[in-house]
Amino acid sequence: QVALSRTQVCGILREELFQGDAFHQSDTHIFIIMGASGDLAKKKIYPTIWWLFRDGLLPENTFIVGYARSRLTVADIRKQSEPFFKATPEEKLKLEDFFARNSYVAGQYDDAASYQRLNSHMNALHLGSQANRLFYLALPPTVYEAVTKNIHESCMSQIGWNRIIVEKPFGRDLQSSDRLSNHISSLFREDQIYRIDHYLGKEMVQNLMVLRFANRIFGPIWNRDNIACVILTFKEPFGTEGRGGYFDEFGIIRDVMQNHLLQMLCLVAMEKPASTNSDDVRDEKVKVLKCISEVQANNVVLGQYVGNPDGEGEATKGYLDDPTVPRGSTTATFAAVVLYVENERWDGVPFILRCGKALNERKAEVRLQFHDVAGDIFHQQCKRNELVIRVQPNEAVYTKMMTKKPGMFFNPEESELDLTYGNRYKNVKLPDAYERLILDVFCGSQMHFVRSDELREAWRIFTPLLHQIELEKPKPIPYIYGSRGPTEADELMKRVGFQYEGTYKWVNPHKL
Results as ranks from 00 to 15, higher is better:
residue 256 V to S: 08
residue 258 Q to S: 14
residue 259 N to I: 14
residue 259 N to Q: 14
residue 261 L to P: 04
residue 262 L to K: 01
residue 264 M to K: 03
residue 268 V to N: 01
residue 270 M to R: 01
residue 270 M to Q: 04
residue 270 M to T: 04
residue 271 E to Q: 04
residue 273 P to H: 00
residue 277 N to W: 10
residue 278 S to I: 04
residue 279 D to V: 11
residue 280 D to W: 05
residue 281 V to D: 01
residue 285 K to G: 08
residue 285 K to R: 15
residue 285 K to N: 09
residue 285 K to M: 14
residue 287 K to S: 09
residue 288 V to Q: 01
residue 291 C to G: 10
residue 291 C to S: 10
residue 294 E to H: 05
residue 294 E to P: 07
residue 295 V to I: 09
residue 296 Q to G: 09
residue 297 A to I: 13
residue 299 N to Q: 09
residue 299 N to F: 06
residue 301 V to T: 04
residue 301 V to W: 00
residue 301 V to A: 08
residue 302 L to Q: 07
residue 304 Q to K: 01
residue 304 Q to F: 01
residue 304 Q to H: 03
residue 304 Q to W: 00
residue 306 V to T: 13
residue 308 N to W: 09
residue 309 P to M: 10
residue 310 D to S: 11
residue 313 G to P: 09
residue 314 E to T: 10
residue 314 E to C: 10
residue 315 A to F: 04
residue 315 A to P: 10
residue 318 G to M: 03
residue 319 Y to S: 00
residue 319 Y to K: 00
residue 320 L to R: 09
residue 320 L to D: 15
residue 322 D to T: 12
residue 322 D to H: 13
residue 323 P to K: 08
residue 324 T to R: 13
residue 324 T to W: 11
residue 326 P to Q: 14
residue 327 R to G: 11
residue 327 R to L: 10
residue 328 G to R: 09
residue 329 S to F: 00
residue 330 T to Y: 13
residue 332 A to D: 06
residue 332 A to Y: 03
residue 335 A to G: 09
residue 335 A to H: 02
residue 336 A to E: 12
residue 337 V to C: 11
residue 338 V to W: 01
residue 338 V to P: 06
residue 339 L to R: 00
residue 340 Y to S: 06
residue 344 E to N: 11
residue 344 E to F: 05
residue 344 E to P: 13
residue 345 R to E: 07
residue 345 R to K: 12
residue 346 W to H: 01
residue 347 D to S: 15
residue 347 D to L: 10
residue 351 F to A: 01
residue 354 R to H: 12
residue 354 R to I: 12
residue 354 R to M: 10
residue 358 A to T: 00
residue 358 A to F: 01
residue 360 N to I: 02
residue 360 N to L: 02
residue 360 N to T: 05
residue 363 K to I: 03
residue 365 E to G: 03
residue 369 Q to S: 06
residue 370 F to L: 10
residue 370 F to V: 02
residue 371 H to V: 08
residue 373 V to G: 14
residue 374 A to F: 12
residue 375 G to Y: 10
residue 376 D to G: 15
residue 377 I to A: 02
residue 377 I to N: 03
residue 382 C to M: 12
residue 385 N to L: 05
residue 388 V to T: 13
residue 388 V to Y: 10
residue 389 I to C: 07
residue 391 V to Y: 14
residue 394 N to I: 08
residue 394 N to R: 13
residue 394 N to A: 14
residue 396 A to G: 11
residue 397 V to C: 15
residue 398 Y to Q: 14
residue 398 Y to A: 14
residue 400 K to A: 11
residue 400 K to H: 15
residue 403 T to H: 10
residue 403 T to Y: 15
residue 404 K to N: 15
residue 407 G to M: 07
residue 408 M to Y: 05
residue 408 M to W: 04
residue 412 P to Q: 15
residue 413 E to K: 09
residue 415 S to D: 02
residue 416 E to V: 15
residue 420 T to A: 14
residue 422 G to E: 08
residue 423 N to S: 13
residue 423 N to H: 06
residue 424 R to C: 05
residue 425 Y to L: 12
residue 427 N to P: 14
residue 428 V to W: 09
residue 428 V to E: 12
residue 431 P to H: 06
residue 433 A to N: 14
residue 434 Y to T: 15
residue 434 Y to A: 14
residue 436 R to A: 15
residue 436 R to V: 08
residue 437 L to F: 10
residue 438 I to Q: 00
residue 439 L to R: 06
residue 439 L to S: 07
residue 440 D to N: 05
residue 441 V to R: 00
residue 444 G to R: 06
residue 446 Q to M: 06
residue 446 Q to W: 01
residue 449 F to D: 01
residue 450 V to E: 05
residue 450 V to K: 15
residue 451 R to S: 15
residue 451 R to A: 06
residue 452 S to P: 02
residue 452 S to V: 12
residue 452 S to Y: 04
residue 452 S to F: 08
residue 453 D to T: 02
residue 453 D to G: 01
residue 457 E to M: 04
residue 457 E to R: 02
residue 457 E to C: 04
residue 458 A to L: 07
residue 460 R to V: 00
residue 460 R to W: 01
residue 460 R to I: 00
residue 463 T to L: 08
residue 464 P to L: 04
residue 466 L to G: 03
residue 468 Q to F: 08
residue 468 Q to C: 09
residue 472 E to W: 06
residue 472 E to A: 08
residue 473 K to H: 09
residue 474 P to K: 11
residue 475 K to H: 11
residue 475 K to S: 05
residue 476 P to K: 01
residue 479 Y to S: 02
residue 480 I to N: 07
residue 480 I to M: 13
residue 486 P to R: 01
residue 490 D to F: 14
residue 490 D to I: 12
residue 491 E to K: 07
residue 492 L to C: 03
residue 493 M to A: 11
residue 495 R to G: 08
residue 496 V to Y: 10
residue 497 G to Y: 12
residue 498 F to R: 15
residue 499 Q to G: 14
residue 499 Q to A: 13
residue 499 Q to I: 09
residue 500 Y to Q: 15
residue 501 E to Q: 10
residue 503 T to W: 13
residue 503 T to Q: 12
residue 503 T to L: 12
residue 503 T to H: 14
residue 505 K to C: 15
residue 508 N to Y: 13
residue 510 H to R: 11
residue 511 K to D: 09
